[in-house]
Design a protein around this nucleic acid. Structure first.
Length: 424
DNA sequence: TCTGGGGTCCTAGGACCC
DNA sequence: TCTGGGGTCCTAGGACCC
């Protein structure tokens, strides 16, 4: 049996790199990408990071800094990032025997057995060159016997220029040296709450955590922390998941571009989110029984009266038909909507999923067949995935005055025919 | 004035049953 | 004043991730 060996490949400043790819004029220039509604900074190019623009800060707090330094600002262009992500992942799948897509910009590779046939630092550099040539997005590579250590190796590859973007952390002595200079909150699985509790116990860095007794850590915290301790010591506890688990929940929620004060606008928004959620559900090829909506005012405001509420219902039969899910959400909205508030956000949640044909027929509506429903939803999805335009239900609204603010949106270069870049 | 969105896993505790 | 024990299931809440 081989010692396990994982690589973590992570795109550098992914969203910012995607934007730069189609804007060669922005090479070596600071770029930031904003969250939905242009609220917070969620990605920064290396140049922007050097200006000390923080991750996750609200835009209004860094507006001066951005203007003074002529930072180029983009709204999130999720269609573009998802498409480029798929290209990166396809490239990695061609290069490694087993790949787990961990997030939009990261993948774990199983390198077990490869080290006998080739030098892993070389292999890491080959990954970097290939992704750069085929897709144009820069990546870093961390290599280690456990996923938790591979994560840390990747951090190091990003942080220290001398590594040239690849760190091989298989050597235990090297692991200990890196752990000794790694703060707790940089460890995968240790967030701010656990960091604070560990600090209070006198544990201040990753090496000190690695040196604790894993069984005691399980008692004091949970099995999650126990696994982290073992992984830091090179004992692989978390395997590679090539096939993503089926989703258990689908959420579609948004902060509105402007506050909603009108029932009809709220009904439009809820219908729109319901339709998006149903679309995602069909992509999963699942049917949901439980539908939930929630809405709330702005909790940061101390002037406006506050209200937040949620409501759920169980469909008589699990469904992924947009019309049924929209109707259920509109019914729930009538129950929880109150006049006289300035609503900031609402959402639709789907739960309790079934595969086609496995659920019990409704006792009171036996044989409730909907022969045309599937064909109609298929047609809808095909049109909406064609890149030619979208069809939608009238209840979703046409003008969408409550819709997202995206003042700095780039074209959908790769997923919309009308946005194809032109070379003159 | 302005603060994202979408997920997962684990645990404790209550409800319920025999 | 006295009032078992053990098991399962479900849910809410906390913590984490990107």
């Amino acid at each position: 049996m081989n010692t396990p060996c994982y690589a973590l490949v992570d795109c550098n400043s992914f969203y910012a790199s995607c934007e730069k790819l189609f804007r060669p004029d922005l090479k070596d220039r600071p770029v930031v990408v904003l969250s939905n509604n242009d609220g917070c900074v969620v990605a920064r190019s290396a140049e922007a990071r050097r200006l000390r623009i923080g991750m996750g800060v609200p835009l209004y707090q860094v507006r001066d800094l951005i203007q003074r330094n002529e930072v180029t600002v983009f709204s999130s262009n999720y269609a573009l990032y998802a498409d480029l992500s798929a290209r990166v992942m396809r490239t990695l799948e061609e290069m490694a025997p087993a790949v787990e897509i961990y997030s939009i910009d990261e993948a774990f590779l199983d390198l077990g057995g490869i080290e006998t046939s080739r030098d892993l630092l070389d292999f890491g550099q080959e990954i970097r060159r290939t992704v750069d040539r085929w897709v144009g997005v820069p990546v870093s590579v961390g290599i280690a016997p456990t996923k938790t250590l591979a994560k840390l190796a990747n951090h190091a590859a990003k942080r220290y220029g001398r590594t040239e973007g690849v760190v091989d952390l298989r050597d235990p002595a090297r692991q200990r040296r890196l752990l000794a200079i790694t703060p707790l909150k940089e460890i995968w699985g240790i967030g701010s709450r656990l960091s604070a509790r560990l600090e209070a116990m006198g544990i201040h860095n990753a090496l000190q955590l690695a040196n604790t007794d894993p069984r005691l850590m399980r008692k004091a915290f949970s099995v999650v922390v126990e696994r982290t301790v073992r992984e830091l010591n090179g004992e692989a506890c978390i395997g590679l998941d090539e096939i993503p688990a089926a989703k258990q929940q689908i959420i579609c929620s948004r902060t509105f571009g402007t506050r909603i004060t009108d029932y009809r606008d709220m009904r439009e928004a809820i219908s729109d989110y319901a339709s998006r959620a149903a679309e995602k559900l069909r992509e999963e090829q699942r049917y949901a029984r439980v539908v939930t909506i929630y809405l709330r005012t702005n909790p940061h405001s101390d002037r406006d009266p506050q209200y937040s509420n949620a409501a759920s219902t169980e469909l008589s039969l699990p469904s992924n038909d947009s019309r049924e899910i929209i109707a259920a959400c509109q019914g729930l909205l009538r129950a929880v909507y109150r006049d006289g508030y300035r609503y900031m956000k609402a959402g639709v949640m789907l739960n309790d999923f079934y595969e086609a044909g496995v659920f019990q027929a409704d006792l009171f509506n036996p044989g409730q067949e909907r022969p045309h429903a599937k064909a109609l939803m298929n047609t809808l999805d095909q049109i909406n995935h064609s890149g030619l335009g979208r069809v939608f239900f009238a209840g979703q609204g046409i003008r969408k005055e409550w819709g997202m603010q995206r003042a700095h949106l780039s074209p959908r270069y790769t997923t919309s025919w009308k946005d194809l870049p032109l070379v003159r």
